[in-house]
Design a protein around this nucleic acid. Structure first.
Lengths: 346, 346
DNA sequence: CGTTAGCATTCTTAAAATTAGAGTGCTAAA
DNA sequence: TTTAGCACTCTAATTTTAAGAATGCTAACG
């Protein structure tokens, strides 16, 4: 590992400072530690150690006569090596289960509820990204006539997700023909991942191979139009106003940049989506998220599994000074819950 | 009218002050008026008139040595009697049309786009309430099997709105039976307003009359479960971060209460919905909206017509100090646009 | 040699004092 | 009735002052 190993004392002191700062939001002084934590060290000794930790880049000074606060690097070490797991209490787990129990009716409701749960229990912002549809398997497809030139295609995915799509059709397609097309599409395409279906629908050769029809045939036209959909990920956000109670966001201009980002769903999706490392928890500390306007925020995210190799993401966005052990546990547990939910319910 | 009629000078002065304050967000002094507006009156005269207007309750003082700002009552008079229409420019109208042109694909997209248009052009918050479903006419119903105990009911409304609903069904209903039920439901219920269908579905007597089946029959069970849906209005909000650039919201605590309300979609829906007066523009000034935390905001709202007697609402939420004539024009024009859109597209 | 007490130093923050200026209300004259 | 002039009030910005918090360093201690 690139970071030099810390001796046991530095280890303890850094952990204590992070912990203390997370709770008070104020720079931590040597005296504060002596008073509040029983470390068996004098203030002077702590000052020496703190100076060392600052030397190493894990702490800073806002100014000379102020206590220390962790740097992003300090948080990094804390999250990677120092912090101790903090399991959720029985009560909290029960809270989460109860919330799901009251809401497991349909896919969208689960998504919404999850973001609400995350924000309610973390007191930060809860975010849920719906699973990427094109990894998802098509369970069933239904074509509903709207008018002479349009139909509504209802795509029911194995995950329970439903996608409605208005599709243009060749003019004056008789109803019986539409039924026939619908039946054939289900026969040929149900059970395949959307990704593969899309490949077929965009490739004239495969299209002919699958349906054994000329390209002008209505069935190929409908297929093309139905599956021309671009990837569309829904973003569910809740708890944004929790940020107002964070003391470090006491000025409008600090909170403004954050909210401008949150209003752009695409940006939030980029921020959360963790395609490269599909499993497990990830913690992005401060500017690591690489998003302008979010330098003061950390993100704890985890993918969840819907079925087979289909993934979505959930996460919590909070101030860099967040209670990492707790938030990590929350995100971990919730992502397990949601994965389980999808497996048993289907 | 309860308010005493203003003589022509008071009329002009009040209008000028409202106008000036709306633009500068600063208390308006007599000198300011002399300098910026050519009213042919001296500062002293203006001061006298302003004192009169304060006496009448239309203006206030923040403190002795400050200019005047309008009271809510002052705004009320301004909006009701004083302000002159300010039509949208050709450019702005074109902007709106263009935005719709690029997005008229499906119902939900129109809703989303409308809130974006409203906020983009007003520089305030744009809100759209989807039409109340139960006024809406059912065009077509499709039942899609999910598993042995659940189906997905897809309700396609005449307006183009689509409502997906997971419905419990009697166990092991064979597919052919489901098709048959589906066909019968469409025969009997398509073309009726959802409200009426709901009445039928919840009333055993009517249910028997319509389907001529015993209450234990699968078809009645499915009908009951499908139409047991409570009224659900979708709320589309955009442009919340516009509030950060308003000088009167320079302190976090003022903006906080607003955002806490906006996060509660139900509250926003209540705020906007104008069931009592279904047609035309309404302006709620400051605390008139009766919503705690929104005393500093005004709302300009208008219902739009989807088809027949089916209504939704659009609106703009901004600071009490908003450019009423302009915002009113925007909301008026947009609600006409959206009404037209729904009529021609279907 | 690591640890600690003591202390001068530095810097922040809050409170108090000062000042400049903006706008009013009133009075008296046009 | 309108307007010029002016004393008065209050705000907001700036400076001054003071208090306090935490540090780093030095020297003593075990």
């Amino acid at each position: 590992m690139a970071t030099p190993a810390l001796d046991s004392r530095k280890h303890d002191v850094l952990e204590t400072i992070v912990d203390c700062y997370n709770r008070t939001a104020e720079p931590v002084s040597s005296q504060k530690i002596v008073r509040d934590y029983d470390m068996g060290l004098s203030a002077a000794t702590l000052r020496n150690t703190m100076a060392d930790l600052e030397e190493l880049g894990y702490l800073t000074h806002p100014h000379t006569s102020a206590g220390r606060i962790p740097t992003e690097q300090g948080y990094r070490v804390y999250v990677d090596n120092l912090m101790t797991d903090q399991k959720l209490s029985r009560k909290e787990k029960q809270f989460i289960r109860d919330r799901y129990a009251s809401a497991r009716r349909d896919f969208e409701e689960i998504m919404e509820q999850t973001s609400k749960i995350l924000s309610a229990i973390s007191h930060h912002i809860g975010v849920v990204l719906s699973p990427e549809l094109h990894q998802s398997i098509l369970r069933r497809l239904e074509l509903i006539s709207i008018d002479s030139e349009h139909i509504l295609a209802v795509l029911l995915m194995a995950s329970g997700a439903v996608k409605n799509q208005v599709v243009s059709i060749p003019k004056d397609l008789p109803d019986e023909e539409l039924y026939r097309i619908n039946r054939i599409l289900n026969e040929k395409l149900a059970g395949l991942p959307l990704k593969q279906i899309r490949q077929i629908s965009q490739d004239p050769v495969k299209l002919r191979a699958v349906f054994d029809r000329p390209l002008s045939d209505p069935i190929t036209v409908v297929t093309q139009n139905t599956f021309a959909l671009e990837q569309e990920i829904h973003v569910y956000i809740d708890g944004t106003s929790n940020f107002f109670s964070q003391p470090e966001f006491g000025e409008v201009r600090k909170i403004e940049s954050l909210f401008r980002v949150l209003e752009q769903k695409e940006q939030v999706a980029d921020l959360l989506s963790a395609r490269q490392e599909p499993l497990g928890i990830q913690v992005l500390i401060g500017s690591e998220n690489g998003c302008e306007g979010m330098e003061m925020c950390s993100i704890v995210r985890s993918s969840y599994r819907v079925r087979g190799n289909q993934f979505g993401t959930i996460g919590v966005i909070g101030p860099t000074r967040m209670a990492y052990p707790r938030i990590v546990s929350i995100v971990k547990f919730t992502s397990q819950m949601i994965s389980k939910l999808f497996e048993e319910s289907l």
